[in-house]
Design a protein around this nucleic acid. Structure first.
Length: 580
DNA sequence: GGTCAGAGCGCG
DNA sequence: AAAGCGCGCTCTGACC
């Protein structure tokens, strides 16, 4: 028995074993209240790969009940991958999968910010079970079994060399990690957050009152503009006031304002910075998202076309660096933070088998290595050249430097240039493990068709060329960003498994706010594209640091086998994730 | 009363 | 000095 499919039947649940040969076992009915213990029992005795419709929907309540599982297969996420994957081909298995439109659904609506009191409603509450959120995939056991069979058939029909099997395992592991990150939460020092806000904005004002510092700086701006009522919070109205004051700008954005000499500019930029801090991550955000010493954002695995995660609620992917000092371990615990140095160019070097680029990255700093190779003169140039190569820069610093990179690293550049060419021609591209880019939409195709007609106008042709170039830049970046996301998923999955193997600490040293599954164990607390933070008991700091390093090496091997490309980490263990 | 696109800026 | 990928969130102002 390899798999156990979980789905709804009647008022409760049904568990159905599926063997390696696809043989379907007898259904075991389980009531709502008994699902956590039924899953925990099987996890202990047989450890199947759990097959379910939508991980957050099923797994979040399990975590709340103290149940962790090792492996799953998320039918919704896997469907999204297989539906578009070029490696699946166009045979009957692929057609059957693609015609199951009900599985081509976005994740369920994000839950509201967590309630101030613990014990938020769960799947097992009658109310929630009776009225599932709209937008989700089917959840019945019959629908799940049928879809699982379609997916197995589609995968069997895929090119054997494709990485799809690894991709869907990694994607599903990511779904488990995402649910666990929300359940455990990121340890957040609300007092430190308040201190940072107060240092920048002044003390917390009453509702509807602007913070002291914003009032002062706003007054400075208005004085310098000679406009006592200048509306600083409305870009279109502010723009008119600026132009009236002789500042010739086309927008009120920072990069344009910075180019002008006027006494109002400096305080205005400062005002905008403070305004951003207040509205995006001020006291209201703190009230909404931090409870019980934990920040619990909602992550959306696979939420970006490239395979990166998105977030929905809480803004997990946009925490400003100036608030990072508020990330603080519980007493007796420590934060192990790690990020990969230049993940995307390293991934590109490995994909392309570019030996020169691999050699340049053999130290800790790929950009320094590129300077040593003689391709460019300074580290800054190396950075702009590499970003320009991956994003498709045509002008500016990046555009100027890319040709030099093309001479120094021809294999790597050929890979991204080919991806751009295919995209510009309306084709699709795929990541290393086989996630394919979406096909062009109808509007794009129509524009290309219009430009190729005999009577096409110059405007039609210009539009078609611009759209083709834009799509080329997208597919150019897709292969790199998407494969980097796959590396990160493998890193997460490996790390999650290693952390689960470490011994729990005694109950008197528990971090209770991390929830029943993680209170006594090191656990992932944060993930952002190429960085992780693990919250760990102090005594396990070294073991966790080793696990983070080992997982990074394992991720490189899992994707690329034996490659000369290294994926070095910046790693530190301390009470705070970042110095204040 | 509500929805919606754009501007602007935070992150990688 | 500023153009080149992928996002989410908040605010504003136009609109129904």
């Amino acid at each position: 028995m390899r798999w156990c499919v979980v789905g709804r039947r009647g008022d409760g649940w049904s568990l159905v074993d599926v063997g390696a040969d696809g043989a379907v076992g007898t259904a075991l009915p389980v009531g709502d209240a008994d699902l956590p213990s039924a899953i925990a029992d099987r996890e202990r005795t047989r450890a199947p790969r759990w097959v379910w419709c939508d991980t957050p929907h099923v797994y979040a309540p399990l975590l709340g009940a103290g149940v962790r599982v090792a492996r799953c297969h998320d039918l919704r996420l896997v469907h999204q991958i297989l539906r578009h994957a070029a490696a699946v081909g166009a045979g009957p298995a692929a057609s059957a999968l693609r015609s199951a439109a009900e599985w081509n659904a976005p994740p369920r609506a994000a839950p509201a910010p967590p309630a101030a009191t613990p014990g938020a409603p769960t799947l097992f509450d009658d109310e929630v079970a009776a009225a599932p959120e709209p937008g989700g995939v089917p959840e019945s056991i019959d629908a799940a079994l049928a879809e699982f069979e379609r997916q197995r058939a589609a995968l069997a029909a895929a090119q054997p060399s494709s990485g799809l099997a690894r991709l869907i395992a990694a994607e599903s592991a990511g779904a488990l990690v995402a649910a666990e990150l929300t359940a455990a939460g990121l340890p957040w020092d609300a007092d430190e957050h308040d201190r940072i806000l107060a240092a920048a904005l002044g003390p917390r004002p009453p509702l509807g009152v602007k913070p002291e510092r914003m009032q002062q700086i706003g007054a400075d701006v208005r004085r310098h503009l000679d406009a006592p009522d200048a509306p600083l919070d409305s870009p279109p109205r502010l723009l008119r006031v600026l132009r009236a004051a002789g500042i010739e700008v086309a927008s009120t954005s920072r990069w344009e304002l910075r180019e002008h000499e006027h006494p109002a500019i400096a305080p205005l930029l400062e005002y905008k910075k403070l305004s951003r801090l207040l509205t995006a991550n001020g006291w209201t955000w703190l009230d909404d998202w931090v409870h019980d010493g934990r920040y619990r954002p909602v992550y959306v695995p696979g939420g970006v076309v490239t395979g990166r995660w998105a977030s929905s609620g809480g803004g997990a992917l946009q925490i400003p660096r100036m608030l990072r000092p508020a990330i603080r371990a519980d007493p007796g615990w420590v934060l192990v933070s790690a990020d990969v140095a230049q993940l995307e160019p390293r991934v590109l070097a490995a994909m392309a088998g570019d030996r020169a680029m691999a050699a340049a990255g053999s130290g800790k700093d790929l950009y320094a290595g590129i300077v040593e190779s003689g391709a460019v003169a300074t580290r800054e140039e190396a950075k702009y050249a590499v970003l320009g190569a991956m994003y498709g820069a045509t002008s500016g610093e990046g555009g100027r430097l890319v040709p030099r990179l093309r001479r120094a690293f021809p294999a790597a550049m050929r890979l991204v240039d080919d991806a751009a060419e295919r995209g510009a021609a309306g084709g699709t591209v795929s990541t290393w493990l086989g996630r394919s880019s979406p096909a062009p939409d109808a509007e794009w195709n129509a524009a290309q068709a219009a430009a190729s007609l005999p009577g096409a106008s110059a405007r039609d042709e210009a539009l078609a060329r611009r759209l083709a170039r834009e799509r080329g830049r997208f597919t150019r970046n897709f292969v790199v960003q998407g494969t980097a996301a796959e590396w990160a998923l493998c890193w997460l999955a490996e790390l999650r498994t290693r952390l689960a193997g470490l011994d729990p600490v005694p109950a008197d040293r528990a971090a209770r706010a991390s929830g029943p599954v993680f209170a006594r164990r090191p656990h992932l607390a944060f993930f952002l594209h190429d960085e992780v933070i693990v919250h760990a008991p102090l005594a396990q700091a070294d073991a966790v640091s080793s696990a983070v390093e080992e997982s990074a090496r394992a991720a490189g091997r899992l994707l690329f086998g034996s490659t000369p490309v290294e994926f070095p980490l910046d790693l530190r263990a301390s009470e705070r994730a970042e110095k204040s």
